[in-house]
Design a protein around this nucleic acid. Structure first.
Lengths: 166, 166
DNA sequence: TATTGTTATACTCTATAACTATA
DNA sequence: TATAGTTATAGAGTATAACAATA
């Protein structure tokens, strides 16, 4: 358990963190806003899935997810095919065009980070990523849990706060 | 210089970080949205200042700053007095009510963090804060620079870009 | 009756541009 | 002419609630 001063300083940093995200979004192609980018990134990482699962990964209401996905689908980046097992559901899949767009996003953001973080060592970047991942996991653990998967097989530098199915 | 895989993983974490911020803002009093909270926090930390300086600290356009400050002033948290040295400017100051509101904000967010991060050590929280501070500084250093002070000596966990009165 | 997904509405945050009042 | 600050407008993100189709 950390001291109050620690928390307050962390709060300040969290609060001021918007600036970094804003600068990241400024290098994104105008046609692809952040919401769509997040959709593509998650589909690229986790593969095909349903709306509800995507909403959970985005940690956002499904109504919001629906709009982001609609935007992506309109541009041909995502395909929504009916789920044969449940006609209410739709299976989302990244199209080749979506994959290309995703590559472009990573290309741009990676270039930005490589520029800004040129004086960071590989290990320092890894450290920050690890701690941010863990922070997010610590918050996730306390969510109204829908269908949190039982300890997703941590893939390398994954979450240090193991997820227990409640 | 870190490897591309490092950057991509960091990008994913940055992208997913909104969830943490959203949860933080959910514990805020309805009357005090995030923008006002940031204003109060910066005035509390750095003391009285002008609009332009606050806008720079917020890393946001002055038009945005103006609205947040107006919101805070309407609620009696911030006082805008004319600058005798320059009649175009206004000096911002935290009122006692603003200080009380700020205390309340820290109280709530600290409580949230203490809950979520109960299994983090003091040192781990410090580590994360330090790295986030440094990340932000790395981005700041590349900004269109208005009155950025000349590379101050980093002192541990404080902002690495200390503020000097222009 | 409950769940999946969509749509309508409203609110916050942001940037750009036009405007004022000083400098 | 340039700068400090305000306001109007527009765009992105989010949540809540009402709705349709299916389970």
């Amino acid at each position: 358990m950390a001291g109050r001063a620690r928390y307050e300083e962390l709060i300040r940093q969290l609060s001021a963190f918007g600036a970094v995200k804003r600068e990241m979004s400024r290098v994104m192609p105008a046609e692809c806003p952040g919401g769509s980018g997040a959709v593509l990134a998650l589909l690229g990482r986790h593969g095909d899935m349903r709306m509800s699962r995507l909403a959970e990964l985005l940690a956002v209401d499904m109504s919001v997810t629906s709009r982001h996905v609609a935007h992506s689908a309109e541009r041909g980046w995502v395909e929504r095919s009916p789920d044969p097992a449940d006609k209410r559901s739709r299976i989302l899949r990244l199209t080749p065009a979506g994959r290309a767009q995703l590559d472009e996003l990573f290309e741009r953001t990676t270039r930005l980070l490589a520029d800004r973080l040129s004086d960071w060592t590989d290990d320092e970047v890894g450290q920050l990523t690890l701690l941010m991942t863990r922070l997010r996991a610590s918050f996730d653990d306390c969510r109204p849990a829908q269908s949190r998967p039982p300890a997703p097989p941590a893939d390398g530098r994954a979450t240090r706060t193991p997820i227990t199915t409640k």
